[in-house]
Design a protein around this nucleic acid. Sequence first.
DNA 1: AGTCCGACTTGATTTCGATCAATCAAAACA
DNA 2: TGTTTTGATTGATCGAAATCAAGTCGGACT
Lengths: 227, 227
Amino acid sequence: MNRLMKPGARERETLLNSGLLSVLGVESVAAMMEIAAIGNLPARQMLFREGEPADMLHCVLSGYMRVYKLDPDGREADVELYGPGDLIGASVVLDGGRYAATAQAAEPSLIARFDLRRVRDIANRRPDLAIALVSALSAQLSRAFASLADDRLHTAPQRVARYLLAHCPVEGKPTSFRLPYQKSLLAGKLGLAPEALSRAFSMLRSHGVNVRGRLVHIGDPEALRRI
Amino acid sequence: MNRLMKPGARERETLLNSGLLSVLGVESVAAMMEIAAIGNLPARQMLFREGEPADMLHCVLSGYMRVYKLDPDGREADVELYGPGDLIGASVVLDGGRYAATAQAAEPSLIARFDLRRVRDIANRRPDLAIALVSALSAQLSRAFASLADDRLHTAPQRVARYLLAHCPVEGKPTSFRLPYQKSLLAGKLGLAPEALSRAFSMLRSHGVNVRGRLVHIGDPEALRRI
DNA sequence: AGTCCGACTTGATTTCGATCAATCAAAACA
DNA sequence: TGTTTTGATTGATCGAAATCAAGTCGGACT
């Protein structure tokens, strides 16, 4: 992390709307603000590495953090992709554990970090924080289960179709929207090689999906659902 | 669940050693014991179904609970397998959520259940409970990440080899041990069809692994690690 | 003992997606 | 503005595992 600083007005604003802080009472928010440090990461910089002692809790303010695990021979498997407002779940280890995966900035990102021991101290005094952490983690566990099942049950075009439907701003009607990040990132998130994502998109063309750059147009959401 | 009852001496003993209760202070243990209800499930019985309102927290006392997600057309994908002492993580939703998956007894099992609202009340008063839940969930999230990465990075024989190594009672030396459950369950846990598990075992024979029924003999753990 | 049933194995086939390789497009940069 | 680098597409090939289909084993039961 390049340089650390106290959160300014903009960062405080973003933090207040983050998944974790937005559900806390004012006093807990204040306590967390107190211990927050903000830092920005250039693209590709690591935030932490698998196996390192976990001493910080992180929250994404802007950008995307890719969390992946490494193979002995260097291949990577993405396990989660965190965006603005997300708590980085793999790093919530309140008792001297180690990071379970590596976190890398997928693009220039702004991150808030909290010393885990101090978080623990606050959680000991203020149950709303502890309960908010439980909620965040159980939501993340659900998402992980969903990915696991999705991987095992659906083909690449199906997974892509489900992703598009889940990210459609409106329901039922034809829509256009912009992918929030590079396709290669999306491929990793869906557990696919970039080539497979590309092929999935071109197969979905015959089902009313048009892609130009990051712009996606969905002609018939109902048809997509039935893929 | 057939019939519910207050925990008896045996059940209290098992609960005390469970992952969740074993890290709590005496008063929190007492509070949790107070609200515990014990029930036993015959094999194949559902504990809860995906999508149902989540109002109970569960802990496995004996047996195994298979947690899986369903496809629209009925195919199942196992996402986790919980054994004695495990907290069923997918059901830790402290605020009116829904179960993210279905839980089914893989064999006759004894389960402790706790009313989620009451758990929440206790967690509000006693931070050690909330923190224990956070720890349990972050451990489960790590496991989910590990499965996800394992699926994507390793072949069936590799996954089986890694499972065997992780469950070897001793390190480094040749060993024999018994699989804790049916092979079809293990296959599901590893994200494989039963046939693929069978073939993986027969391919591992040439690397010093012998299997007869549930009995596994590992001739050379080091060789396994290098598969 | 024999019989039945579920769990497991084995074989043949097919499908899916990874991988390798070659373009192609499009930003980023000087 | 061209030049360079990075990301995306397309094609061809290969390998891993799902699936379908028999067959085998083993334990429970009468």
